[in-house]
Write a protein that binds this DNA or RNA. Structure first.
Lengths: 337, 337
DNA sequence: TTGTAGGCGTTATCAA
DNA sequence: TTGATAACGCCTACAA
């Protein structure tokens, strides 16, 4: 069994109160005893029992993240990297990271959030893939549970967040394509209720308009952020009477799927058809035609989200509650180099 | 604040004991009160406080998994899928999944295991990427902490496990390559202390021998299970005076890296150079030359590991403590179809 | 069949 | 500066 505070107290002939306060660095403990206590506790291998502490403090030192998993065989590098950042940051702040998976915007998802909130399983949540109007944000705000998000919903509820500027990003992408001589540019997006979709689509439209190109609704397709979705949407686009010469994709995975069908059709990506993505996942650098994309430092972003969340939880002031990143254009062969 | 057992008791004018026992389904509660209690508890939205329960029961209803993360930008589909299975299975058994990341076989990793064991943070561990002699297994066994593993170490310590037969798998791969007419077959493996490496290398050697081919030490390279590692190792192989005509890779990511350099060199994969992998990650079906590989149902495997672990934790008998899967050969263009 | 009461290991209040 | 002591919410001997 674990060493308890009582045993440390007995060892030193002090009260458990003193031990507790000494270890928590209160200033009403004499320096001498404090040092002694810290040393002895260390030697005895004492560390406070988590459950007891939680029960008493009504805090769990745990943050929660619920992974959207629409299909069993999901394997999205975006989430690997995101998770990795969450895990590392949490660990370094001595927090635990509690994970569950649930289909996005599904009853199951709701149940888990409610269960975790209700049972006080976590002190706060990290949320991404934000919807335009997002019940998770509404619910947690209403329940007064700390949360941070990647992207902001339109709910106008106050919470710390990080945004990656997809609107300007997509303008940049479109501008780049136009400069490379591609003008009939299609767009493959995601579900309409996703914040990133709206931002990026708007950026695409604005980019076109600013280049003097009339957006063509026939060139706007919906995918589902997966390779497969990109493949199918691109297939539809390429079967049009007047197919596009370039496709801007809401994320890299979609773009990779689009390039796949292009290759199948014998098109030379970067010449016959330009393709661009968004994310900057590692894989994008290694596709048959390396992918031009907008890079966002996801690992750093996810670490920063945790940092913000923990700051919020412990009640410290947040120097900057809203951070906006500008994604970086990485030009590769898929747009002709 | 959460509804407590006391409030439910007050509501019904019963003692908390009765509530507790009724909800836990003890048989010394009258059917009538039991039903009433269950109903009222439900209505009031009562669910037992986790910390209190843990403190009392000395259990956490949480299982732990520590993700090997050697580089910050790790994004390995193998782990996405593995994690996804762990998360789903844990959730469906009403367990939590606690995640941390640490570089494999590093001091940090040791610290986390020790901390979690010491502080009773989890009831048990899931371990994969097992080493030949694995201190994690030794340590947890010694500490009497429940664990399950994917692959078994040579430590001869008793614990439930699942194995995927890499030895026979690699024989199958080599046989397939030989049948396709490739005889000068190289191997790119992983760190020598990994169990999968030893199994798969042995399978490769045996496969060659059985085909009457003398293994050539010059054709055996070491990667690191990543695309990059595969790329570099394959580059060395292709620069040999007598380069191989086929490369068997310890996993798909390595194989994808190997194909990359092959393409760069202008080799037609499947004809000039055959490449095979192991894992069956989704990406492998979509590479420039789709990859022949050994498929293992990782999602199911990870779910099953959780199932076994929980059974072990609660002390129920395990019908089958050691399961061996045979990976399935999936033939694609990278070996000539 | 139901209720009383003690204790799991902490932290926090109050008194010494 | 230190120490007794009462919670935190739950489970479970034991008593009724």
């Amino acid at each position: 069994m674990q060493v308890t505070i009582r045993e440390v107290a007995k060892q030193l002939n002090l009260s458990i109160t003193t031990i507790s306060r000494a270890l928590d660095g209160y200033d009403d403990v004499s320096e001498a005893t404090r040092k002694l206590v810290v040393k002895t506790a260390e030697e005895m291998g004492y560390s406070p029992n988590r459950a007891a502490r939680q029960l008493r403090r009504q805090r769990t030192d745990t943050i929660g993240y619920i992974l959207p998993s629409n299909k069993p065989r999901f394997a999205d590098p975006f989430f690997s990297e995101f998770l990795s950042g969450l895990g590392d940051a949490a660990a370094s702040l001595n927090y635990d990271l509690l994970i569950s998976t649930a289909p996005a915007d599904h009853e199951t998802e709701q149940k888990i959030y409610q269960r975790w909130v209700h049972a006080h399983k976590v002190d706060g949540f990290v949320i991404n893939r934000v919807r335009l109007y997002d019940w998770r944000i509404q619910y947690l705000s209403y329940q007064q549970v700390p949360l941070v998000t990647l992207e902001r919903s339109l709910d106008e509820l106050e919470h710390p967040s990080i945004e990656v500027d997809g609107f300007n990003g997509f303008q940049t992408l479109v501008t780049h394509l136009v400069e490379k001589g591609f003008r009939r540019i299609a767009y493959i997006g995601a579900s309409q209720d996703l914040k990133i979709q709206v931002n990026r689509l708007n950026g695409y439209m604005t980019g076109l308009t600013r280049a003097g190109i009339q957006p063509d609704p026939a060139l706007i397709e919906e995918g589902n952020l997966t390779r497969q979705g990109g493949y199918l949407a691109a297939k539809r686009l390429l079967s049009l009477e007047k197919p596009p010469v370039a496709i801007a994709c809401v994320n890299d995975l979609t773009a990779i799927g689009a390039m796949e069908i292009a290759h199948e059709r014998g098109l030379v990506v970067g010449k016959d058809l330009a393709v661009v993505g968004f994310d900057g996942i590692e894989e994008a650098a290694h596709t048959q035609s390396p992918l031009t994309t907008l890079y966002q430092p996801l690992y750093e972003i996810s670490r920063e989200l945790v940092q913000m969340l923990v700051t919020l939880i412990v009640g410290d002031p947040l120097p900057q509650a809203h951070i906006v990143y500008t994604p970086q254009l990485v030009i590769r062969a898929s747009t002709g180099g």
